[in-house]
Each structure stands twice: as structure tokens, then as C-alpha cells.
């Protein structure tokens, strides 16, 4: 990362901190002013996390190599029942086993 990229990173982090703070104060401000978000906008905002995060998962499944794909599938099954810490542990064990034992 060169110098200008690094400055950009610092600015993005600061903007992200402000955005996060706005979410933390926003409910308080809204409840004291009693304004409502339009329902369709609320539905769209509700979908943002799953929509953005899916774009970080799906391409990695295809482009990460078969060992990563197998680890992600195992983690998905684990994740239907257990917390994300167990998903990480299971996926990590699978990928380490494939890389250091199988191959």
C-alpha cells in the first residue's frame, strides 16, 4: 500500500466510524422525534447486509480452489446448527487436513 492509498484507508476508517456512530445514535434520535422509515426503504435496508455479504461468499466459493470450496461446504452444514466459531474451526480443520495430509 503506498502513501496515498494509506491516507485513503485512514479516511475510509474515519468515515466508517462516523457511519457506525450514526447507527448507534440513530434509534435514540428517531424515537425522541418519532419519525418512521418508509416500509419499502426499510425492506431494502433490511436486505443490505445479506446482499453485500453474499457477494463476498459466492465468488470465493468458485475461485478459492477446491480445498476452500470443500471447507466452505462443511462450514455451511455446521453453521445450520452451531455458532460461527464452530464454523470457522471446522472449515479451518478441513482446509488444513487437505493441504497438509491429503496432498
Amino acid at each position: 500500500m503506498d502513501n496515498s492509498e494509506h491516507m485513503q484507508l485512514i479516511y475510509v476508517i474515519l468515515a466508517a466510524a462516523v457511519a457506525t456512530f450514526l447507527t448507534r445514535i440513530g434509534g435514540y434520535v428517531m424515537i425522541t422525534q418519532m419519525k418512521r422509515i418508509p416500509p419499502r426503504m426499510e425492506a431494502a435496508l433490511n436486505a443490505v447486509p445479506a446482499a453485500v455479504l453474499s457477494t463476498l461468499v459466492a465468488p470465493a466459493f468458485l475461485s478459492g480452489g477446491w480445498d476452500v470450496a470443500v471447507a466452505m461446504l462443511v462450514a455451511l452444514v455446521i453453521g445450520l446448527r452451531f455458532s460461527s466459531l464452530w464454523m470457522l474451526l471446522a472449515g479451518w480443520l478441513v482446509v488444513m487436513a487437505i493441504r497438509h495430509v491429503v496432498i
Partner: peptide, 16 residues
């Protein structure tokens, strides 16, 4: 040390 697999799995956990 298998670090590359953790981020996609972490995001998958968030999606779930």
C-alpha cells in the same frame, strides 16, 4: 496455516 479460508467462512456465518 489456512488463514485464507477464514474470511469467506466468517461472512457465510454472518449471512446465515
Amino acid at each position: 496455516i489456512g488463514l485464507d479460508v477464514l474470511l469467506p467462512i466468517y461472512f457465510m456465518g454472518l449471512v446465515l
